[in-house]
């Protein structure tokens, strides 16, 4: 019944814009890749705009950039400590990339790159690999203390705490990626569905037409909520990254 344009899933379709094959891999440039480039371009434009003058008394763009800088730096300092600041560029890049991707996805007809599970999985795996590689590089076998917390009776530790710690560690990239993906995906589905209902009911005429204001108001209410979700999810992703990195820095809890 639903017309093709109103199908809430079709907004996630990938479209090839330029073919690119390397060996057996299809690396074609898609609408998703285009949005990644647009996201990076927007961030770089913002950065150019805000660090162009570098005045002692900041202008509007410059102070936004400085506030973001301090925001991420404070986030790292409060969760991973001062030595966590060595990961500042990585966390900042993650934060602004996800934030801009989410916000750009809120523009009608723009593709939302974080609504594809593989994108969030890659981002989460980058964090996971960084945590493991840096944790082992810095602490050696001491990194395993992460699963062997001090101050717990040995039997309890061996039978209960260590398995739980291992499971929780391994499930981190799963929850980390699915949280972001599900929020963005579900939010866009909701918006599209209610907007579709509003249009269909309005087109049906009669009493349904009068009732079309209900989904319309819902879309109106959901839109600011989705903007909030776009920010909160970027923040949560960056914050959890800091928490995980703090484990790599101080595995002894």
């Amino acid at each position: 019944m639903i017309a093709a344009g109103l199908d809430p899933i079709s907004q996630f379709d990938l479209k090839k814009m330029a073919e690119l094959k390397v060996g057996n891999f299809d690396l074609s440039f898609t609408n998703s890749a285009l949005m990644m480039v647009v996201t990076v371009g927007c961030i770089l434009a913002w950065m150019l705009l805000s660090t162009g003058k570098r005045s002692l008394v900041p202008g509007r763009a410059q102070s936004i950039a400085e506030v973001s800088y301090e925001f991420v730096a404070d986030m790292i300092r409060s969760t991973a400590g001062k030595d966590g600041l060595r990961f500042f560029p990585f966390v900042f890049t993650l934060f602004v990339f996800i934030l801009f991707a989410n916000l750009l996805g809120m523009i009608p007809f723009f593709f939302t790159i974080t609504s594809h599970i593989i994108v969030t999985v890659v981002l989460a795996m980058m964090v996971m690999i960084l945590v493991v590689v840096y944790g082992v590089y810095k602490n050696g076998f001491g990194f395993l203390k992460l699963f062997w917390p001090s101050g717990v009776p040995f039997v309890l530790k061996a039978l209960l705490v260590a398995p739980i710690e291992v499971i929780s560690f391994l499930s981190r990239p799963v929850s980390h990626s699915i949280r972001l993906w599900a929020n963005m995906f579900a939010g866009h589905i909701l918006l599209k569905l209610f907007a579709g209902f509003a249009v269909m009911m309005f087109a049906a005429g009669g009493l349904t037409m009068a009732g079309s204001f209900v989904p319309y108001v819902l879309v109106l209410a959901l839109t600011p909520l989705e903007f909030l979700v776009a920010f909160v999810q970027a923040y949560v992703f960056a914050l959890l990254t800091c928490v995980y990195l703090s484990d790599a820095l101080h595995p002894g809890h």
Partner: peptide, 11 residues
């Protein structure tokens, strides 16, 4: 593959 490639590149 395309998604991973372009994501890593742009990131």
């Amino acid at each position: 593959p395309s998604q991973i490639f372009w994501l890593l590149l742009s990131f």
